[in-house]
Design a protein around this nucleic acid. Structure first.
Length: 554
RNA sequence: GCCCCCGUAGCUCAGGGGAUAGAGCACAGGAUUCCUAAUCCUGGUGUCGCAUGUUCGAAUCAUGCCGGGGGCACCA
């Protein structure tokens, strides 16, 4: 619809210039076709007259009036107004809207999906929590944002892959193995000192008990250095499996699981460092190896290999991003916790140093989730063992409510998640509002079928019967769905979809209360059922994009 | 000290150059012989944190300040 209007406007401009109504001149026509807030301003509006005013050296209203004369002849419009400082307001003929409903139903699940991104290859990396403990609520938010973003971008025609980077190397692994080892000794009644450095959570004890059951006491008298690797591997396997389980319950899917350890083992970390060294981006100081990230906008240089010979996490990260870049993506999206924001300049610097445009990397920072319980904020720390797990939240409020909840804020704003509210008053959750709209529409079709009314040949349906104000509002809103999806994908803001669906649900519920889909008049019923079908499709597709189920009954 | 995010109705937040700034919650009242009342309808609030600037036009952009949160290792 917007495209048609834009075309009409540009044609009118050309005609006016040819006829001398407007000065003939090369102008930039970077114009907007927008939906006005007030219905008295029509279905769409354009700011072209204001944009051209300075270029043509004419008053905006005069330009608008010239264009108006041409645009009024276009059969697409019922009426064309000039308003305010020079807006041109378009009132679309109702039949254009009404006919649109047929094509929405014909497109079915495809409506809202497009190829506007032309198969641009994107890798979205998210969650990537260390395999040292269960996922907590904060990870859940990242998971919901990343997975929904992947779905939305796919719908907009991106070629999307998702990836989880497993930090299964480094110091923390040794800490994990040691923690389990100590709990194992405790299990056999040994008196051990369990230091603050160790992972405190009860899940460590569970893993230790599991090892005891399988392996018996054969490690009890083995010094920690000799068996820590066994404990580490075992713990990582168990924790990774439970992370995968949690994500599956959360309907979050990853195409790839990428292990940091393999980067080290295959020598890719060293390769990346050597590559930068050849380019003169690495130097030695105080016994350590440094990357010249300050040459690329970072505030200081960063260490890639410490004086003790151990490679830093950042070194692996350079190699990891190099690997991603070599896999040929047009865009890399990393979703990180907001506490990692200081990390962005150095990773971007490494991408530039590797010879790529740093714009290829888009980092979304997901702000903290403030978890409330009884009005108190619960602090979360994996090491201290005090946290609310994603699993716990899923068991309490369910996947649908949790996923929708995480989509009710843009990701860079803090989110308050009140557990008690979510538990006790779960029907107040906005997700039910949207799901209920879908369920109600399904119920309409069940009833229609019971009465023997079916849609039949939809091309035969008289859509002009859909003329009530509420019907036109719904129809117009349905037409916005593809625009919303595309906008959400390009802006990397999946939360827009949840806002859209909530608004659509509000319109549907209003309509539902005031009118009946199934009436005595069968032709009218068919027209309304067509509208119901189109609306139901949009709810189903929209909820799918959010990873939320669309129940047929509630 | 430096960096990032936030500041919009009583509360939680949308809107991120465009016309008269919106929703949910909370509060009060009302609606169901009929497709699901997990619903709807009616009621009212704003120095858009403050100040300068850019613009035909600023809640929106820029700069500075104030307030809240987070981050600034040869940790991961």
């Amino acid at each position: 619809m917007r495209e048609n209007i834009k075309k009409a406007v540009l044609e009118a401009l050309e005609q006016c210039m040819d006829s001398g109504e407007l000065p003939k001149k090369d102008v930039t026509t970077d114009i907007q076709i927008s939906r006005p807030k007030h219905e008295s301003h029509g279905d769409f509006a354009t700011n072209i007259a204001m944009v051209l005013a300075s270029q043509l050296k004419m008053a905006p209203r005069n330009i608008a009036q010239a264009l108006q004369g041409r645009l009024e002849e276009n059969p697409l419009f019922d009426r064309v107004d000039v308003a305010g400082p020079g807006f041109i307001n378009f009132f679309i003929r109702p039949e254009w809207w009404q006919k649109g409903i047929v094509s929405i139903v014909e497109k079915g699940a495809e409506f809202g999906r497009s190829s506007s991104a032309n198969g641009k290859k994107v890798l979205i990396e998210f969650v990537s929590a260390n395999p040292t403990g269960p996922l907590h609520v904060g990870h859940g938010r990242g998971a919901a944002v990343g997975d929904s973003l992947a779905r939305v971008m796919k719908a907009a025609g991106y070629d999307v892959e998702t990836e989880y980077y497993i930090n299964d190397a480094g110091n923390q692994m040794k800490t994990l193995g040691t923690s389990v080892y100590l709990r194992y000794l405790e299990h056999y009644g040994r008196d051990v000192e369990f230091s603050q450095e160790c992972y405190q959570g009860d899940y460590i004890k569970d893993i230790a008990r599991d090892i005891a059951e399988r392996e018996g006491d054969r490690f009890v008298d083995v010094p920690v250095e000799e068996c820590v690797e066994f404990f580490t591997t075992h713990a990582v396997n168990i924790i990774s499996a439970s992370i995968r389980d949690d994500l599956e319950s959360f309907r979050v899917h990853f195409d790839n699981w990428f292990s940091e350890k393999t980067l080290h083992e295959s020598g890719k970390v060293q390769e990346a460092i050597d590559f930068l060294k050849e380019r003169g981006q690495i130097y030695e100081k105080d016994g350590a190896l440094w990357f010249r990230s300050s040459d690329f906008g970072d505030e200081k240089d960063r260490v890639v290999r410490r004086a003790n010979g151990i490679l830093t996490y950042f070194a692996a990260d350079i190699a990891y991003h190099r690997d991603k870049l070599e896999r040929g993506y047009h865009m890399l999206v990393d979703i990180w916790g907001a506490d990692h924001h200081g990390y962005i300049p150095r990773v971007k610097a490494s991408i530039a140093a590797l010879g790529h445009s740093e714009d290829k990397l888009k980092v979304l920072l997901v702000q903290l989730v403030n978890l409330f319980e009884g009005g108190k904020v619960k602090q979360m720390s994996t090491r201290a063992g005090q946290f609310v797990t994603l699993r716990e939240v899923l068991d309490d409020v369910g996947t649908d409510a949790a996923r929708f909840m995480f989509m009710t804020r843009k990701c860079d704003s803090h989110l308050d998640f009140d557990l008690e509210l979510a538990k006790k008053k779960s029907q107040d959750n906005p997700v039910y509002y949207v799901q209920y709209a879908h369920a109600r529409l399904c119920s309409v079709f069940r009833n229609a079928e019971a009465q023997g009314i079916t849609l039949g040949d939809i091309s035969e349906i008289d859509t002009s019967r859909l003329s009530a104000r509420e019907e036109m509002d719904l129809i117009r809103a349905l037409g916005e769905f593809p625009v919303v999806v595309e906008g959400a994908a390009h802006a990397l803001e999946p939360h827009r979809v949840s806002y859209y669906l909530t608004e659509l649900a509000s319109m549907l519920h209003s309509y539902y209360t005031k009118y009946r889909f199934i009436e005595q008049d069968v032709e009218l019923s068919r027209a309304r059922m067509l509208l119901a079908q189109a609306t139901k499709n949009v709810f189903a597709t929209g909820l799918e994009l959010l990873g939320v189920s669309a129940p047929e009954k509630m």
